[in-house]
Computed example of a mutant assay.
Amino acid sequence: MGFHTFPIDRADALEDPSRYRYCSREELVAALALDGSETVADLGSGTGFYTDDVAPFAARVYAVDVQAEMHELYREKGMPENVEPVTAPIDDLPLDDDALDAAFSTMTYHEFAGEGALDELARVLGPGGRLVTVDWTASGEGESGPSRDERYDREAAVSHHEEAGFTMERAEERPETMLLVATRD
């Protein structure tokens, strides 16, 4: 497992509303528990599908993606004024310490999880900062998403988060996905 990217030639699939069956806008926004004053990062934002859902509930959102081409597609689609694209890997974010109040990852944890990514998130999230992770689970059926050998199961993902200094508030596993809600110690 480890770092890989979503194919640019399939980027239109990132705008498919059927993605909501794995994580709805309402579920994501509720898990983030925003009051509108926060600075938030979408980790692996792609074309901004979920970034657009969170932007109305935050003061500022960083759309973080390692592929500049995804930001270009997002700009063409129309990027909200409070969204700023950031082209960087998750393990080397060009953000100050404690710069974020919250961060979220939707179906991208398996792409960036590994040495340094969660430690970097602990650095840029302020004390009590919230990290919401929704991703494919290794114990899922494998009908959608990456192959099962590219996924983490809930127990491994929880362990990764805790080792990086996060406290788990919620860790649910579903038929294909998992939802983790953690806060930085």
Rank of each mutant, 00 (worst) to 15 (best):
F3N: 06
F6S: 01
R10G: 09
A11W: 13
P17A: 09
Y22G: 08
D35F: 00
G36I: 00
S37W: 00
T39W: 08
T39Q: 04
V40F: 02
A41Q: 10
A41V: 06
L43H: 04
G46Q: 08
G48D: 12
Y50D: 01
T51A: 05
D53T: 00
D53A: 10
A59H: 07
R60D: 08
V64E: 09
D65C: 08
D65N: 05
D65R: 02
A68R: 09
E72H: 12
Y74H: 09
R75F: 10
P80L: 00
E81P: 15
V83I: 02
V86H: 07
V86T: 04
A88L: 10
L93H: 04
D96A: 14
D96Y: 13
D101G: 11
F104H: 00
T108F: 11
H110P: 04
G114Y: 08
A117I: 05
D119L: 06
E120Y: 13
E120P: 15
E120G: 12
L121V: 08
L121Q: 10
P127A: 08
G129I: 08
L131N: 06
L131D: 06
V132I: 07
S139M: 07
G142R: 06
G142H: 06
G142Y: 13
G142I: 08
S144P: 06
P146N: 10
R148E: 10
D149K: 12
D149F: 13
E150V: 08
R151M: 03
Y152H: 09
D153M: 01
E155Y: 02
A156K: 15
S159W: 07
H161S: 13
H161A: 12
E162A: 00
E162C: 06
F166Q: 03
R174Y: 07
T177Y: 10
M178P: 12
M178E: 03
D185T: 10
